[in-house]
Design a binder for these strands. Structure first.
Lengths: 133, 133
DNA sequence: CAGGATCCCAGAAGATACTG
DNA sequence: CAGTATCTTCTGGGATCCTG
């Protein structure tokens, strides 16, 4: 809501103190982006229930292309968040699973998910009133 | 690490149970994307310390263009995460601040930030060994 | 000072077809 | 089955110039 007040109270400095916090959070942004893409979190969430094969992942995560699934799985593996195990059967089977690291990440991420679940209504309401002008 | 095991143990079903969790998380992904862009979280983090004017934000968040700052601020305002207050002075001043909603969001996000701070080393190590082949 | 309006680009996302 | 290869589309991010 764009209000119109009367007296500014902020100090117009550059806030050097905040700078330090920012430096610390500089690293956070890239990770947030990695995890904040369209599919990564969904994959991780599925894998929380246990290891999963490629085709099952593809069927479970509705709408993802094998292309994107491959890419995201690779990126997650590179970051050490999931592991990849190949079974030399015929036809070949590949099983993906969360690593310990990936599992530990899922915790704060699920918290964020809870927040969204609890507040998405407010967000959407805000959007409507905002768009209404 | 791409291992090679010997016997697959996963059930090849479609996992309908997981489906329900996924449905719940479908809404999470878009919000994660909103917050997971390059600047949103940095802006929110700065605003945790208190209201802030446009120019101060721009100076504090190093590297952001006024264009992007404007865009992201608008998006955050639309979602009800920050408020915008205009002071009709000359020259005009505009002050941005976290709303209650935005503040509550900052909590789970900072937890995620803590996780990153604690584990970024492992991630980078994993990347190196992965890229080394 | 705080933006709006344009133009531009690299890389992300996706569709499709092919392969060990 | 689990990918790779290719092509096209889309969009996040940025540079630049202009204005109340």
């Amino acid at each position: 809501m764009t209000n119109t007040g009367s007296k500014p109270e902020t100090k117009p400095e550059t806030r050097p103190e905040t700078r330090h916090v920012l430096e610390r959070c500089r690293n956070v942004a890239p990770i947030l982006q990695r995890v904040g893409d369209k599919w990564s979190m969904l994959i991780i969430i599925v894998l929380i229930d246990g290891p999963c094969r490629f085709s099952v992942l593809k069927r479970t995560i509705d709408g993802i292309s094998q292309q994107m699934l491959t890419r995201v799985l690779k990126a997650l593996e590179r970051d050490g968040l999931i592991s990849r195990t190949t079974y030399p059967t015929s036809p070949p089977q590949v099983e993906y699973a969360l690593t310990e690291l990936g599992l530990s990440l899922s915790e704060p991420v699920l918290r964020l998910g809870d927040w969204v679940r609890d507040n998405i209504g407010r967000i959407e309401a805000s959007r409507e009133t905002y768009d209404a002008r």
